[in-house]
Structure formats: C-alpha cells, structure tokens
Design a protein around this nucleic acid. Structure first.
Length: 269
DNA sequence: ATGACCGGTCGTACCGGA
C-alpha cells in the first residue's frame, strides 16, 4: 500500500498537478491539506475517475482536508472528538464564538486507520492562534489516545506546522522567537509520539534533508532552505510494515507547485 | 539565468501562509 500526505495549497490551483501526480505516483491513500474549497467544490469527478473514494472536509477559502482512497473508505470522521474551535479577537470581546475549522478528517482505508491533519499555524508566539495550536494538538492527542487501542494499523498524516528537531529547519537561528520550533510545540508532537507512534523517517530524493516545505519567496527551494513539518506518525503495526518512505521533491519543481512536497510511505500490510 | 512568492477574495489591497 502506498500512503501519502500533501499540503496542496488550494486543490483548485493545484488540480492539473494533483491529477498528474495521482497518475504518476499512484498512491492508494492520499491525505490532502489546505484544499481551500468547500466540500461541494472539490473535484470529485476527476478523482473518482481514477478509482478513488473521497472523504472531503472543506469549508471554503481557508483550510480544508481530504482523504482519497482506492483501498476502501469507512468510518469517516469529520473532525475529532473535543476538537477546539477558533475565533479571532474582536473589539470589545476576547473571542467571538469559536468556530471548529476543517482541519481533520479520519477514515478507515482497508487495514489502516488514517487521519489527514492541518494543524493550526500559530502565527506568532504571542498570538491567540499559538495557544489555539497548542490546545488543538493536545486535544488531538486525547482523541488518538481514545481510539488507538482499537486500531490495527494507524497513521496520523499531515501538515503539523511543527519542526520536531533543530535538524528539521535549514537554519535554526533564523527561527529564534518564531513558531514551529518552540519547545511547547515540539512537546505537543512528542506527546503524540509518546502514545506509541513513530515519526516515520523519510529519505529525500536529493540532499540529506527530508524537508517537506520551502517558502515560495527568495528561491528557498533551490537553496534548500526548507523545513520538515509534514509528518506521518504511525503505530507499531504500520511502522513495521514500512518498506520505503521519501519526500517527492519533484512535485515542488516547475511551474505552479504547492510550497509543500508530498511525503510518500510504502507499506507491506 | 547570481534572482527569485502564491492563493483567495468583492477592500484588485490585503490577509494568511510558516
């Protein structure tokens, strides 16, 4: 089974490249993030024509996640139990009514319980979005703790917006005072790992740095100024079945790429 | 090639992205 996760930064803008990538890479299960369309506006027909069943959790202009599977799709969960919402501060009030955003979708795909996750960015450490990010990760950890014992294979996939170690950014000093590298964020990911999950190591197709994201600006990709923030966290059953894992840098090249590359994991389940 | 962002929106300027 080929499992992959890819933040496509708008499924609409990325559609030709997404379809080419499906044809070329032939994932059995693909987790998408930042689809940036409503569930209705997702390109269902084009994906179904390639043999995929879809679990789409979109909300419109921001966020949005999906799972495409050609090995079965059951027990779809749109969001997780206890998933916190977010509302930006407004005049005269700390928060409006929080809105639960389309950042998590789960499905059982054949032998594997799969989650496609788009963890909140956090923006800056003094922004309410940062507290939201930490709360979101803590509540997701609780949701995983509740369902994990009942699963055979399990994989939490997606854009975690956290670089787990200093080696996961091209220059740690650039990130002083920034989100994505703070200890609370790393602790929140570690708390997931501590449930018995493995942050699957990937080989890159070039360089020794399996980064998954490069900023569009400043020629970051060509300078390999990247970050490893897209992860697959797998339980022991899935981890033991891994035969290969790589970052498909080719998908970041050329005209009109996402700023993220897919992380691909082959499993013999 | 020695320089380099992109997507969405009804504010075609600005926010969000990381």
């Amino acid at each position: 089974m080929r499992l992959a996760t890819w933040n496509v930064n708008s499924v609409t803008a990325r559609l030709p490249r997404l379809l080419d990538w499906l044809d070329d890479s032939a994932p059995d299960v693909l987790c998408l993030q930042e689809i940036k369309v409503s569930s209705e506006a997702f390109p269902h027909a084009e994906c179904e024509a390639r043999g995929y069943e879809l679990a789409v959790h979109g909300e419109g202009r921001w966020n949005g996640v999906a799972i495409l599977s050609r090995v079965g799709l059951a027990e779809v969960a749109y969001g997780f139990d206890g998933q916190p919402g977010y509302a930006p501060p407004s005049d005269g009030a700390m928060f409006d009514t929080p809105k639960v955003e389309a950042r998590a979708v789960g499905a059982t795909c054949g032998p594997l319980r799969v989650w496609s996750l788009y963890v909140p960015n956090g923006r800056t450490v003094d922004d309410p979005h940062y507290a939201y990010k930490l709360e979101w990760l803590a509540r997701y950890r609780d949701a995983v703790a509740a369902e994990l014992p009942a699963q055979q294979g399990f994989a939490a996939c997606g854009d975690f917006n956290v670089a787990p170690t200093d080696a996961d950014v091209w220059d740690r000093s650039v990130f002083d005072g920034s989100t994505h590298v703070t200890q609370p964020e790393r602790d929140a990911v570690q708390a997931l790992v501590d449930l018995g999950l493995t942050d699957l190591p990937a080989r890159a197709l070039k360089h020794d740095t399996p980064y998954t994201y490069w900023d569009y600006r400043g020629g970051s990709f060509h300078k390999n100024m990247g970050m490893r923030i897209d992860l697959v966290l797998a339980n022991d059953a899935a981890t033991k079945a891994v035969t290969d894992a790589y970052v498909d840098r080719d998908a970041r090249k050329g005209t009109g790429p996402s700023d993220h590359a897919p992380l691909v994991v082959d499993l013999d389940l």
